[in-house]
Write a protein that binds this DNA or RNA. Structure first.
Lengths: 341, 341
DNA sequence: CTGTTAGCGCATTCAC
DNA sequence: GTGAATGCGCTAACAG
């Protein structure tokens, strides 16, 4: 072997000292060359940069973070992986943060019991801030982060009374919108299907939908089911309702996939005609909702606005940790297609 | 204001010195208490942990990384966000790495021109390894990482001759499988639709499919189109083929959504009957493929095996950076449903 | 088993 | 505008 014992010897880390030596300056000069706006002569900077280039030097961000006692890491806690809309939020947030010079440390929320631990690990890495996608944080965690001056923003959840910032949809407003839409089109028997019962947004929808319908003469909420999430669950659910004689003439689903399951269940399993016999409303306006075989009426998810507000709130608190928590509830609207009369 | 000038004062960082003082031990003892397997008396450890708990101490991983000259950060470069299968890969890889004590630094590949820069930023954070989902890296980048002893694994891409490890599907094998499937069912005119032309996996499929069909008497590849990705593109594509008189009796699509677009185009726009007039094959076995209104025959994506091999290759090289790069091509198979005869 | 010491790579004083 | 010195919080090596 030509390279004998050298096999696997990893190149020694190149530090600012190496660059300083080659450029014939001090390490401080190297540091200044890599610090935007630092006080350094153009010629010195040029020589440093040249030396850095020939050596392939990259500043060690870890050392810098330790020294400055702050990092440019943002922790992102992610739930809701089965929702393309939320994954988009993750993607775009990470892309946008990158343009602001931040890096994303991603953590998947496997188990809600472990959130405390998850946040603890993020804090060990001295993250500058935390974004949480579709989950809420225990109050103790929020308090600990506040104590450390690490801002938190919840996305797609509110976390009422927990003391964090949040960006989500206004479920109460949306519930009224759905009620009016159905009443106007002369529906009489409305069913609402959603996933986890503890999600503030969908709870709000069903609550205000229910309230609004209670004020009418002849339109009622005939079913309000939870733990119905996804295509199979939706298809099973409409089958069970029909079998049990519930027979709704309109179904609102908290998720487009569920709604398409209801659509297929009604059509394929019972020969119902949509929307003549049954109107179906989804939520999220995922790509599938627009496909020719579904043509689902659904609720728009204002993704870009959600992201914009999230970043605004987060970045502002990264600048000034003293800002109070802020909750922003966005209004959205229908995308009407062929699944409703 | 009761708290006067103290508003916004952030709690001072709690360090191992604070804990050592409270517990009446040295900082080294604190370090040992938090180092699994370190040589420390149980009683000492107990006192340290107690002090740490009352102070709310968390070790500063940044300082540890600097000291040890290695981090437990893994960079994940992500492309293919529009593919649920690949997003699952991201999710599970991050979850699994976490159980191994690693953290994921996520970077989205916005622009392939910027990959060099992206990897550079990861290296500044002293990542221990890099996983790349559905993209290839320039040879220079691979070389630089090799020089530093930072292992790279490509997922869903091969990157032939670039010197990295990779886990992907065996496209050549799959092309033969598809050819045999179609020949056996007496198809005569096959079309293949895929997205980006430079993806090694789908190129391999079409290549070997084409080769195999060329060896038959009466079955030919009548069209091989690129840049056809997604529902709309698939629907448009089948319309154009029919308008141009190509009239395939079987279409393979590199992506399930594309295939469903073809399905809807054939049925809704041309009144064709599937599979009598046209067989459609997708790829990925996404959830939509199984839905009642589509019933798409497709290629299984062996997600768990992909992830398993990726982690095996990556973790082994994290332990021993001297290991040679390894490429693993997995074989997969059909999920036959109602869209093929 | 434990404490003392040194140093990881950098940014920031402070003199000059 | 520049260099020397200091310390961020921690772990590793050593001596006890």
């Amino acid at each position: 072997m030509p390279d004998g014992g050298l096999t696997g010897i990893v190149a020694k880390q190149i530090t600012s000292i190496d660059v300083a030596n080659l450029a014939g300056v001090s390490v401080a000069a190297v540091s200044r060359a890599f610090t935007p706006g630092a006080s350094i002569a153009p010629e010195t900077k040029r020589r440093v940069m040249e030396a850095a280039k020939t050596l392939g030097y990259q500043p060690n961000v870890i050392a810098r973070s330790l020294n400055q006692r702050r990092s440019r890491l943002i922790g992102v806690l992610m739930s809701g992986w089965n929702n393309f809309g939320y994954v988009d939020v993750l993607r775009i947030i990470s892309e946008q943060l990158e343009t602001q010079g931040y890096e994303v440390m991603l953590k998947s929320i496997l188990d809600r019991e472990k959130i405390v631990e998850n946040v603890g690990q993020l804090l060990q890495y001295q993250v500058a801030g935390i974004a949480v996608v579709s989950e809420v944080l225990p109050a103790e965690v929020t308090a600990e982060c506040a104590r450390r001056g690490v801002p938190i923003v919840l996305v797609n959840r509110i976390g009422r009374g927990l003391g964090n910032s949040a960006v989500s949809l206004d479920g109460l407003h949306l519930g009224r919108l759905i009620a009016d839409f159905l009443i106007e089109r002369r529906h009489k028997r409305v069913a609402a299907l959603r996933g986890r019962a503890d999600i503030d947004f969908t709870s709000d929808i069903v609550q205000s939908l229910s309230d609004r319908l209670a004020g009418t003469e002849d339109c009622e909420l005939v079913a309000s089911l939870t733990d119905v999430l996804g295509y199979e669950a939706g298809r099973r659910s409409i089958n069970e309702m029909i079998a049990n004689g519930v027979e709704p003439d309109a179904v609102f689903c908290s998720y487009d996939d569920t709604a398409i399951g209801v659509l297929d269940g009604a059509r394929l399993d019972h020969g119902l005609e949509v929307p003549r016999d049954l109107s179906v409303i989804g939520n999220g306006n995922r790509a599938v909702a627009s496909w020719g075989s579904h043509e689902l009426t659904t609720i728009e998810y204002p993704r870009d606005e959600i992201i914009e507000q999230t970043l605004r709130i987060l970045l502002a608190r990264l600048e000034d940790p003293d800002l109070e928590p802020e909750t922003r509830l966005l209004e959205t609207d229908f995308v009407v297609r062929a699944s409703t009369r």
